[in-house]
Every structure is written in structure tokens, then in C-alpha cells.
Simulated assay, not measured.
Amino acid sequence: MNSPTVTLRPMRQDEYEKYTTRRDLEYVQALAETMPAEAAREKARQDRAQFLPRGLATERQRILVAEDTEGQVVGYAWVGLEEPRTKTTDTAWLYDISVEEPYRRSGYGRAILAAVEAVAREAGADRLGLNVFGDNTPAISLYRACGYEVTAQQMAKRL
């Protein structure tokens, strides 16, 4: 099978609300595995306010739509052009990557990730960081296959 090709374009305002609503819901569901649901909703709200205070117009943040060669939307990516804690620009930060359901397990995740890496390099970064929830096996497999390494790890046990 040939590897798919994607093109990234800036997300339009009419796409933004649908994307962020879905992303926030998925984020809350993942957070709720480690904290009460209300705390997870509040953290998601605070994180969006912190990292996207001006939505699509937030400086140094790119929310991108991935399209295949026929112009079909196959996924999304949100990349910050600086490390979120230190604000240094040698490290870009991948906040989110997603592939639409019909396109999963077909190489689109890898193609979107490669395109995001190119965006980060063009912005002057020589490293792309990200966080991944420990139970997100498909994402962890993708990142490992693409050369990403664990740099920190948290663990917990439900009692």
C-alpha cells in the first residue's frame, strides 16, 4: 500500500467550533480517568483559555486541517510553535492530532505527523514535543514508529 499524502491548511472559523467541541469532549473523557468529571471539565476549560485565548487568532498556535489529494478532510492537528512551559522556540508542541474515523489505520496519522513536523521545522524548531495518555495505545504506537521517545512518565494505580 502506498503511503497517503496530506496537505495541511489553516482551519477556518466555521470549522473551529466543531473541532474544539469534539476535542474538548475527548480531552475531558481522557482526563476523567484520573480525576473527577467536574474537575476534568474545568481543566479542559482552563487549558483552552490558556493555550487558545484568541481561538484561531492566537499567536504561535496553528490549528490545521489535513486534506488528502482529493481535498477530503482526513484529520486535524494543533501545533504550538513554542514549548508551552518555557516558551522557547527550539521546541514546537503537538497539542492534538486526530484522524477521521474512515481514514484510521491507513497511514494518515503518520502523514499528518510528518506534515506537522515540517511546519515545526519551517518555524525554526528542531524538536517536536507532545503528551500522550498512557492508555492511548494507537497513538503511542504511531509516535514510537515515527521515532518519538519517552522523555517523562507518570504512573498510577487505582485503589
Rank of each mutant, 00 (worst) to 15 (best):
M155I: 11
I63Y: 04
L159I: 14
Y143S: 02
M155Q: 10
Q29S: 11
K87D: 05
E42V: 07
G75H: 08
T21A: 15
D126C: 09
W78H: 15
Y16C: 07
K87W: 10
K43P: 03
L159P: 14
V119S: 10
E15I: 07
A30E: 11
G124T: 05
E117K: 14
P102I: 04
Y108G: 11
A66C: 09
Y103G: 05
A115W: 06
Q46S: 06
A156M: 08
E59F: 01
E38S: 15
G80H: 14
T5E: 15
A77E: 03
E83L: 04
S98A: 12
F51R: 13
R104C: 03
D14L: 13
Y108N: 03
Y76P: 03
G109L: 09
E82G: 06
L142R: 08
E67I: 02
P53T: 01
A57N: 10
R121K: 14
W93M: 07
A156D: 09
E117Q: 15
A66F: 03
G107P: 10
T69K: 13
R60F: 08
P10I: 02
L142G: 07
L81Q: 06
G55F: 01
L159A: 10
L31F: 08
R62E: 11
L31R: 05
A118L: 14
Q29P: 00
L52P: 01
N131L: 07
A37C: 00
E100P: 00
S141L: 11
G124Y: 10
P102S: 05
A37N: 07
L113T: 02
A156T: 13
V132S: 06
L142K: 14
T137F: 09
M1Q: 11
L94F: 05
Y108P: 07
I97E: 09
E38P: 00
Q50S: 02
L8E: 05
A30R: 03
R121E: 15
A92D: 08
V116D: 02
Y76G: 04
Q154G: 10
F133T: 05
L25T: 04
G109Q: 07
R105M: 03
P4S: 00
A120F: 09
R121G: 05
T137N: 05
R85I: 13
Y148E: 05
E38M: 08
E59H: 14
I112Q: 15
E100M: 09
L159H: 02
D135Y: 12
T88H: 15
T86F: 00
L64E: 13
T34W: 14
G80T: 09
T58M: 10
L81G: 06
R158W: 02
Y27D: 11
V99G: 09
E70A: 09
F133N: 01
E42K: 13
